[in-house]
Design a protein around this nucleic acid. Structure first.
Length: 802
DNA sequence: CACCCTCGAGTTCA
DNA sequence: CTCGAGGGTG
């Protein structure tokens, strides 16, 4: 998909396609002569799907791609709506919205008030009442004809068989939205887990009764297929309403089906054709409907002008979006005055007096192309999803972790599935689950490999009962060595420039046969320019993946002191590790364009030899020994030799170190190849000591202006790097904590501060900014300007002022 | 036995 | 930056 397409072009094309598809469908349902071949129809739908993948914001619930199996399903009787359920035109930005509002005001020739309401991400429904009695409930379908779901709808709370109150017309179509509230969605998913358990228990009983053997695993799989976890509220609502509830004779099936229906909610938001309404404004219609006993949304407001309406849109697009009980995909803005509806009229597909402001989707559908397994520095084998690139919550996502094989199973995703993707906490991509309705049978199950994908060693759990599988070949598994070397070079470790992801891969990847790679990190500090100069990689064409050749033959470039740009190579994904290496791919990347920088890396390595002891300790990659424990140990013992010589009790005596960490240290030092690392690093000149340290047990002279105080820094503090701020706190004798708790004394914050600042505010902690932070670490807390007396009264927080 | 904290892993962005 | 796991501390 290399086409360049603007959003506008795509939208125009999608609208054309939508119209054409709906026409064809209508023709089909009117039993008209076939106006197009099935292939032509399919091609239209395919193209629309492709556009919606490229531009998820074009996707809407009334899109023909969202109605399964070509719109109105054969499983349900068709219902012809008395009045067509029009869709709404969409706007995607404040600018577009204001343009629309301006036009409406101009066409109206007077001041217009707008009714704003949250657009629920659910299913549109049309309820037909005759003489106050519910006669049918239908989905929107194609706008003209929908699916009859009357049998199901009766179980949805809030639906009335008979309208209450007075004054309803003889025949009335009431439009609303069926949805699953977020909390109900959570509860329903928990409930489904219960059904799975009951299903398995029943299968076991039945097997026992018949004296047949019982295969628990198989039964659990069957339970998962029968009562699958639900991916997201919208799909769950849609699936729930489209059950064949009356045909379910199995007790569990029926019960689960009812639970799904009873979890749904309804809000009504309009009335179909109604020639002489007794009210003058749309907002009053809601009062009327409420009077008949049907639920209306509490999230609506009449705004006096377009500016106020835009404010409403902004409010619910931001912070408030998550505080609403249900998912929101936008705001519907209607002209409030009913008389104007007539005047403004409608186009063939949408009224002119209303528009839908669409928020950027937080959840999108995308294709799960593959599930591959990677091994990290600790040897843990982690499956992750490779998806068709898709934009979600403001960035493009292609990968998401699936943690382990159990999570893959629980989520129920198959390779080839269309999956629902979101960003948890707006940052971390997460696969929620499959859209099972869109399966075509070509999907296949993910099988967790039994062997390490990089070194072939059989994977196994570390301890009995562990879900995580690990590669036990810690010493020489390329993935683990690479990971450890990268960790050594990282900022939290020895902070070596040039030894990041690429550098580590280049040094450890045993892909050039004539040069021995770093088989473990033991040789890291013995590297010489001569040796490094030998390492070469084959340059490949980014398009074809073929080896590049010049007049001397295959082009080879030197590594790793040559800067390399890596590019994602999807074609490498299906290869085994050995094949990948042979073909010159690094993991799933290919080398695109090398260029020079060696001396720098060697100089950096040289510098690292005399860096702080705690950094060197971190670089040994000992379980549970991160920067904090390392600092404590380094400060207390003063040298690696002293730590190595210490007993378990002596180690555990250090503040912040307990039995487990002590054990981890002792076990680490007992391993031969670990000792070799220490020996060779020492021989190469790594200092492993704090110069002038008096020796073990000499507790750090507790001093400094911040003694006994805990400070957390968050966001960017002017004049400090993230690291620098921590150093400053520690240098002043304070504790630099990584998370905010009520034991925190000060929270220094700057631009970009996130949840930590929010938490600090909630806890009522003392907040300081960069300038005050400087005073704090240089002169101590007493030098800070006094806190203004907190007003005992109104309106909470004092405004923060610079 | 509660907290509260750190570790470790994963991800994408500027 | 966030989460879960599992550590340490009071």
């Amino acid at each position: 998909m290399t086409e360049e397409l603007s959003l506008e072009q795509a939208r125009d094309e999608a609208e054309g396609l939508t119209t054409r598809i709906l026409e064809l469908r209508a023709a089909y349902y009117d039993r008209d002569a076939q106006v197009a071949s099935d292939e032509e129809y399919d091609a239209l739908v395919l193209r629309l799907e492709e556009l919606e993948r490229l531009f998820p914001e074009l996707q809407s619930q009334d899109s023909p791609t969202q109605t399964v199996g070509g719109g109105v399903s054969e499983l349900f009787d068709p219902v012809v709506h008395a009045e067509a359920m029009l869709s709404l035109d969409n706007v995607f930005s404040e600018e577009e919205f204001l343009d629309w509002a301006t036009k409406v005001e101009r066409d109206s020739g007077r001041k217009v008030a707008f009714l704003c309401e949250l657009k629920i991400d659910g299913l549109a429904i049309n309820l037909r009442y005759e003489r106050g009695l519910l006669v049918s409930a239908a989905t929107r379908g194609n706008g003209q004809v929908g699916d009859d779901v009357t049998a199901n709808i009766r179980y949805v709370p809030g639906i009335l068989e008979r309208l209450e109150g007075e004054g309803h017309p003889e025949i009335v179509e009431i439009r609303g939205e069926i949805f699953l509230a977020k909390a109900a969605f959570e509860r329903l998913n928990e409930g489904l887990a219960g059904f799975r358990e009951r299903y398995v228990a029943r299968a076991e009983e039945r097997a026992a009764a018949k004296g047949r053997p019982f295969d628990r695993e198989k039964s659990e799989d069957a339970a998962k297929r029968r009562f699958p976890a639900l991916a997201n509220p919208r799909n769950a609502a849609s699936g729930g309403l489209r059950q064949q509830i009356e045909k379910k004779d199995d007790e569990l099936d029926r019960e689960a089906g009812l639970a799904r229906l009873e979890s749904l909610s309804l809000y009504v938001h309009g009335i179909g054709a109604w020639p002489d309404p007794p009210v003058a404004a749309q907002s009053e219609v809601y009062g009327l409907i409420s009077g008949w006993g049907l639920p209306t949304s509490p999230y609506f407001r009449v705004e006096p002008d377009a500016g106020a309406a835009a404010e409403f849109i902004r409010t619910y697009g931001g912070e408030q979006r998550h505080s609403v009980e249900h998912e929101i995909d936008g705001v519907v803005v209607k002209v409030d005055e009913l008389a104007l509806h007539e005047e403004l009229g409608a186009t063939s597909r949408a009224p002119r007096w209303a528009t839908a402001y669409k928020y950027p989707p937080e959840q999108v559908n995308t294709k799960l192309l593959d599930i591959v397994v990677s091994v990290g520095r600790t040897g843990r084998a982690t499956p992750f999803a490779i998806m068709e690139k898709v934009r979600v919550a403001g960035s493009e996502v292609r990968q998401a972790t699936l943690h382990n094989q159990d999570v893959v199973k629980v989520k129920g995703v198959l390779i080839g599935d269309t999956v629902v993707l979101r960003k948890a906490g707006d940052v971390i991509p997460e696969v929620l689950g499959p859209v099972a309705e869109l399966r075509d049978g070509s999907e296949r199950e993910f099988v967790m490999p039994t062997d390490c994908p990089e070194c072939g060693t059989p994977l196994r759990p570390m301890k009995e009962g562990d879900i995580d599988l690990r590669c036990p070949n810690a010493q020489s598994c390329p993935a683990q060595v690479r990971g450890r070397v990268e960790h050594i070079g990282s900022r939290g470790g020895l902070d070596i420039e040039g030894l990041g992801e690429v550098g580590a891969a280049a040094l450890t990847q045993p892909e050039v046969p004539e040069v021995p790679p770093l088989m473990t990190e033991a040789r890291l500090f013995e590297l010489t320019a001569e040796e490094l100069l030998e390492i070469e990689v084959i340059v490949r064409d980014a398009e074809t993946g073929l080896e590049k050749e010049d007049e001397d033959g295959v082009v080879r470039r030197r590594m790793p002191f040559q800067k390399v740009r890596l590019e994602y190579a999807p074609e490498a994904v299906d290869l085994t590790a050995a094949e990948r290496r042979k073909q010159g791919f690094r993991k799933d990347f290919r080398v695109v364009e090398p260029s020079a920088q060696l001396v720098k890396l060697l100089a950096e390595l040289e510098k690292a030899k005399t860096k702080d002891l705690w950094r060197q300790l971190v670089s040994l990659n000992i379980r549970h020994v991160g920067p904090v424990a390392s600092r404590a140990l380094a400060q207390y013992f003063g040298s690696l030799e002293a730590i190595r010589a210490a007993t378990r009790d002596e180690l555990a005596a250090v503040d912040g170190v307990g039995g487990i960490i002590a054990d981890a240290l002792i076990e680490w030092f007992a391993v031969d190849w670990h000792q070799e690392i220490v020996e060779r690093w020492t021989a190469a000149g790594v200092r492993f000591a704090i110069p002038g340290h008096p020796g073990p047990g000499a507790a750090a002279a507790a001093g400094g202006v911040l003694a006994g105080l805990t400070v957390v820094a968050t966001g960017s503090l002017e004049g400090y790097t993230r690291e620098g701020a921590q150093e400053a706190i520690i240098a002043a004798g304070g504790k630099a904590a990584s998370s905010v708790s009520k034991k925190t004394d000060f929270v220094a914050w700057g631009p970009g501060a996130g949840s930590k600042l929010a938490k600090a505010e909630a806890l009522g902690l003392r907040l300081i900014e960069a300038a005050e932070f400087r005073i704090l670490v240089e002169q101590g807390p007493d030098a800070l300007p006094p806190l203004p007396e907190p007003e005992p009264e109104p309106d909470g927080e004092p405004a923060e002022e610079a």
